[in-house]
Write a protein that binds this DNA or RNA. Structure first.
Lengths: 146, 146
DNA sequence: AGTTTGTTGATAATAACTATTAATTAAAAA
DNA sequence: TTTTTAATTAATAGTTATTATCAACAAACT
């Protein structure tokens, strides 16, 4: 998460121009916990940038990822989601409503140690995805039953 | 991993017909550790079933998954891979050659406990993916440098 | 064997994403 | 500030994995 000034500086430093659309896309990602995909971002920005196309979303996302401002998450849907928190952390998806939440302050080290012992790979990263029913959907389900 | 007799019985029990294509696809998955995607399966079976189409592969995979004979794995490539080992286990992908290996006998319980404490989700499953350089690629890389 | 019903496989459709390109716009030099 | 230069936008078309359609066909029940 960076403020506009730092983002501007970073884009310039990496040789990319600074455009309102790019800042808006990054800003939109910073201001949500919903892990939007390209289409959700497009819809969110549509009122403010009615001429912006999906291609711009995709290209900007690619740049933001390249310069390390965002990470891509793949929870097994048919589209990718994006997250302005770049620190690696697991995600959990509700199998009922498909919302995706962060799991923060997760300690990867026991798992990594476990894997390092089992393989001869030179480890460089990992992605953990959990699945379950979110509290809201649990509440809805218990209502329906009663 | 089931033998042909059990697979036949299970397919019938679940209301699906037993066809040579279906048995062949399941068999191909049982006899590899390469975690093939649809195209790799298609190419592998092509010599023996030259008229079989990719659509049959996809449809059969869907059935096999539905009746619990295989699992789908999504290592962040543009295609899905399939595994006849249905017991949940992590996978590791080489970031150089893209091979995907199993990590067996991994203990998920510390991670699950960790997550159960942090969220109010009703957990139902998880997928862990690790990334790194496989031993073969490490060897190739050290050769090139020297 | 005949009949029913699900399956195959060729083809077309879909959907997410990427490449192309002309017109626009911003950055950098003067 | 103005000009030059190069990158960006956004419409469009292309690509690719996967899914749907449907007529011909094969499995399974009678």
């Amino acid at each position: 998460m960076m403020d506009a000034k730092k983002v501007t500086a970073l884009l310039r430093k990496k040789g990319f121009k600074v455009t309102p659309q790019r800042l808006a896309i990054y800003n939109a990602l910073c201001n949500t916990k919903a892990h939007p995909n390209a289409e959700m971002l497009f819809n969110k920005l549509q009122p403010y940038y009615p001429t912006m196309s999906l291609a711009t979303i995709y290209k900007t996302i690619d740049i933001l990822r390249e310069i390390g401002l965002i990470q891509v998450i793949n929870v097994g849907e048919d589209s990718l989601r994006y997250d302005a928190t770049v620190e690696l952390h697991p995600h959990i998806r509700c199998t009922v409503c498909n919302r995706v939440d962060d799991i923060m302050d997760f300690d990867f080290s026991p798992a990594i140690k476990n894997v390092a012992e089992k393989t001869s790979y030179d480890l460089s990263g990992q992605q953990f995805y959990f699945y379950g029913v979110c509290p809201e959907c649990q509440a809805k389900m218990s209502k329906k039953i009663s």
